[in-house]
Simulated scan of single mutants.
Amino acid sequence: MSAYEPHTLLARQPASDIARLVPVRTAMIGGKLIQSVSARELHAYLNVGKLFAAWMPERIAQYGFFLQQDYEVFSDSGNNPAGGRPSKEYTITLDMAKELSMVERNAKGKEARQYFIECERRALAPAVDQLASLPPEQRALIALMVDNASIKARQDEHAQALAGQAEVQAQQGATLTQVEQRVDELADTMVVRTRPAGSESITHMRPRAAKMFGLPERIVEYLVRQSPLQIKPACMVKNDHEDAEGGSYAVYWVKDVNAVLRRFTAECQMVTPSFATHPYVEGRFKLTPARDRP
Results as ranks from 00 to 15, higher is better:
C268K: 01
N47E: 11
Q69R: 15
K88W: 08
A290E: 10
V24C: 07
V168A: 14
V48C: 10
T8H: 07
K98V: 04
R20W: 00
I117N: 08
D240E: 13
S199A: 12
G164K: 05
P136F: 09
N258M: 09
Q68C: 03
A266K: 12
G49V: 07
H278R: 06
Q181D: 12
E99G: 06
D17M: 09
L223D: 00
N47W: 02
C268V: 00
E120N: 07
L215D: 00
L229R: 13
C268I: 03
V192C: 12
P126I: 02
S133C: 06
A54M: 14
N80C: 14
Q269R: 09
Q171Y: 14
L215M: 03
F52Q: 02
V224E: 01
L51A: 15
A266L: 07
A187R: 14
W55R: 02
Q181V: 05
V73I: 14
I60L: 08
A250K: 01
D184L: 00
V257R: 08
L229S: 02
R122K: 00
S133G: 13
L131E: 05
M102N: 10
M236D: 01
P81M: 02
T203A: 12
R218H: 11
E111I: 03
D256N: 06
G30N: 08
A209E: 03
A153T: 12
E180V: 09
D240S: 14
P86A: 12
V22S: 05
T272H: 12
C268H: 03
D76G: 05
D17G: 11
P57T: 04
Q178S: 13
G30K: 06
A259C: 01
Y45P: 02
L215P: 04
P216Q: 01
L42M: 10
R40A: 11
Q160A: 15
L100Q: 02
E180L: 13
K32L: 11
V146F: 09
D76V: 07
E267G: 03
E200T: 05
V220E: 01
V146H: 00
P294C: 06
F66H: 14
V22D: 00
Q165V: 11
Y252Q: 04
E99W: 08
A234Q: 08
A163T: 09
M56N: 04
E41D: 12
E267M: 09
